[in-house]
């Protein structure tokens, strides 16, 4: 199996506080990898380092290597990294001043794609991939992205990220602001998407991790305590702290 993202000795800081203390992880291509752990353990910081979003905070810095498809992300322009590694955030954040169509096309237009036909095709394809096409195909250019329901907005954000055809998709608790039905739709979507791309998902919900991910990493206080097959993590963890967390003894 191929490695999509290779993380070696990754450290990250906010100001003087070290948030990650040297993480090593190899993310399998075309699989979903879940990142779990208690609040403040560094899991969001970790995935934000993978597409260099971490450094957009003026106080933040990082160190170590992250290779995506064999290339060190810190050796290429941040803009290119973020086109190859898409991201979906905890709260749906469509652009409220743009129509649904323009939201999906936003990334393509940044890339310099202005051909109507190509845009139309990719927008339709991305919305279909995000399982939103049927719900919005009649209001594509009429309604703003903010007019949709929360779950639809999140799928719109996924479509927006898919439109630039990334190799890796980072999801930072993508369903934690959604109702159970919308959550189920997002989870179904992750199942579909991982046929084609690599997914790294941060989640607070351990059932969700066990449902969608083949691999799971457990973070605690800025360290990757254990990283293994999801089944192994949830049934037979080798570290006591993982077991305590899984069984709900803390966190």
């Amino acid at each position: 199996m191929a490695t999509a993202v290779e993380v070696h000795d990754l450290k990250a800081w906010f100001g003087k506080t070290e948030a990650l203390h040297g993480i090593n992880m190899a993310v399998e291509a075309k699989h979903a990898t879940a990142v779990i752990g208690p609040s403040g353990c560094g899991k969001s910081t970790f995935i934000r380092c993978l597409n260099r979003m971490h450094e957009t905070n003026p106080e933040a810095k990082s160190e170590g290597t992250v290779r995506v498809g064999g290339v060190d992300v810190y050796e290429m322009p941040a803009v290119d990294v973020r086109r190859r590694v898409g991201m979906v955030f905890q709260k749906p954040n469509p652009f409220p001043t743009m129509t649904i169509y323009d939201n999906v096309a936003a990334g393509l237009k940044l890339n310099g794609t202005h051909n109507r036909k190509i845009l139309d095709d990719i927008v339709e394809h991305s919305l279909q991939q995000a399982a939103l096409w049927d719900e919005v195909k009649d209001i594509l250019k009429k309604q703003s992205g903010a007019s949709l329901s929360g779950g639809q907005q999140q799928r719109l954000c996924i479509a927006r990220a898919l439109a630039v055809s990334p190799e890796v998709m980072l999801m930072d608790e993508p369903a934690s602001a959604l109702d159970p039905i919308s959550t189920a739709k997002i989870e179904d979507l992750i199942f579909e998407l991982k046929q084609k791309l690599t997914i790294v998902i941060v989640t607070h919900n351990m059932q969700q991790a066990s449902r969608v991910a083949e691999f799971t990493g457990f973070f605690l206080m800025g360290n990757l305590i254990e990283f293994d097959k999801t089944e192994k993590i949830f049934t037979n963890p080798s570290d006591k702290r993982t077991e305590d967390y899984i069984t709900g003894r803390f966190g």
């Binding site: 936003a106 990220a161 630039v164």
Partner: peptide, 27 residues
């Protein structure tokens, strides 16, 4: 202008100026 709007633009691969135009000035 909410910070997630800026992050949404950056995560799509916008440069800083593109982010300002797309997410900040537009909003």
């Amino acid at each position: 202008v909410p910070q997630p709007q800026r992050e949404a633009a950056l995560a799509l691969g916008a440069t800083r100026w593109e982010m300002i135009r797309m997410a900040v000035l537009r909003n």
